[in-house]
Amino acid sequence: MRMLSFCIALALATPLYADEAGRITVTGEGQAFAAPDMATITLGVTERADNARDAMDATSAGVAAILGRLTAMGVEPRDVQTSDLSLGPVWTQHNSSGEAVITGYEASNRLTVRVRNLDSLGGVLDAVLEDGANRFSGLGFGLQDPAPLEDEARRAAVADALARARLYAEAAGVDLGPILSINESGGVRPMPMDAPMFAARAEAVPVAAGETGLSASVTIVFALGTDE
């Protein structure tokens, strides 16, 4: 599936000298889509206890179990990273005095995990929940090698700008001259996607891969001449 959406801006510069050729500036946008082959999930373990040591020990035990399960399911160590580790008091306000006192401690350990085998994603989510993950704050799909899709989006953006420039030049009754400059605007950007849900396996957490999309924007300046 390939789609293009266009956002074109046209500007004619006023010549500084009588013999200076006119110019036309066109901005084209291109989009490219592909099925993702990687998912990134953010999950964690949060535990409370009467003292700080017990809270951190309980959290660490849960994370250790999750790390072991991820390794057993083929997730490589380079694809697992601790993204947040915290420990703090739990405050409770007494109804009688209104004074806040410490009634326990809460420890939290959050992991960011890349799953390169999407067929196993539902099973991975189900397994880490079994092993003690009680925080889940993110799921994103992407490509392990986005370069080919980025180039496709750039080509689409240039083709868009060329087509629009020819159209405007024809409508204005002028010749479209050579390209004077090409500038990429803002780099290649990911696009949010919506997709229906499906279950990776009957007993696993349902996940949806859908498509991932990238968009590119390019501004091209052309010289103009009079159509005689």
Rank of each mutant, 00 (worst) to 15 (best):
119 D>N: 13
145 D>P: 00
178 P>Y: 00
188 V>F: 11
227 D>T: 12
10 L>E: 15
70 L>W: 08
218 V>A: 05
54 D>P: 03
158 V>D: 12
153 A>W: 11
187 G>Q: 08
174 V>M: 07
59 T>N: 07
15 P>M: 04
74 G>F: 01
169 A>F: 03
225 G>E: 15
198 F>I: 05
181 S>F: 00
110 R>K: 07
85 L>T: 14
134 N>M: 13
195 A>K: 08
98 G>W: 09
151 D>P: 00
63 V>R: 09
140 G>W: 02
166 R>V: 03
34 A>V: 12
216 A>Y: 10
117 N>E: 15
16 L>Y: 01
182 I>H: 09
59 T>Q: 06
173 G>L: 11
222 F>R: 08
26 V>R: 04
228 E>F: 08
226 T>Y: 05
228 E>P: 14
33 F>A: 03
215 S>K: 14
44 G>C: 05
198 F>S: 14
52 A>S: 11
112 T>A: 00
205 V>H: 04
18 A>V: 10
89 P>N: 03
40 T>N: 04
20 E>H: 04
76 E>F: 03
21 A>Y: 09
183 N>W: 01
53 R>S: 07
183 N>V: 11
225 G>Y: 14
136 F>K: 03
18 A>R: 12
172 A>N: 00
144 Q>E: 06
84 D>R: 11
125 L>Q: 15
97 S>F: 01
6 F>H: 12
59 T>L: 05
130 E>L: 08
207 V>H: 09
112 T>L: 02
96 S>W: 09
69 R>F: 03
140 G>S: 15
18 A>L: 09
180 L>D: 10
76 E>S: 14
14 T>S: 13
91 W>C: 03
143 L>A: 10
202 A>M: 07
37 D>S: 03
197 M>P: 00
73 M>A: 01
129 L>A: 13
154 R>N: 00
213 G>C: 06
214 L>M: 14
19 D>S: 10
173 G>S: 13
79 D>S: 11
171 A>E: 03
155 R>C: 12
225 G>R: 14
189 R>H: 02
188 V>D: 11
139 L>K: 13
152 E>W: 01
189 R>W: 05
59 T>A: 14
178 P>A: 12
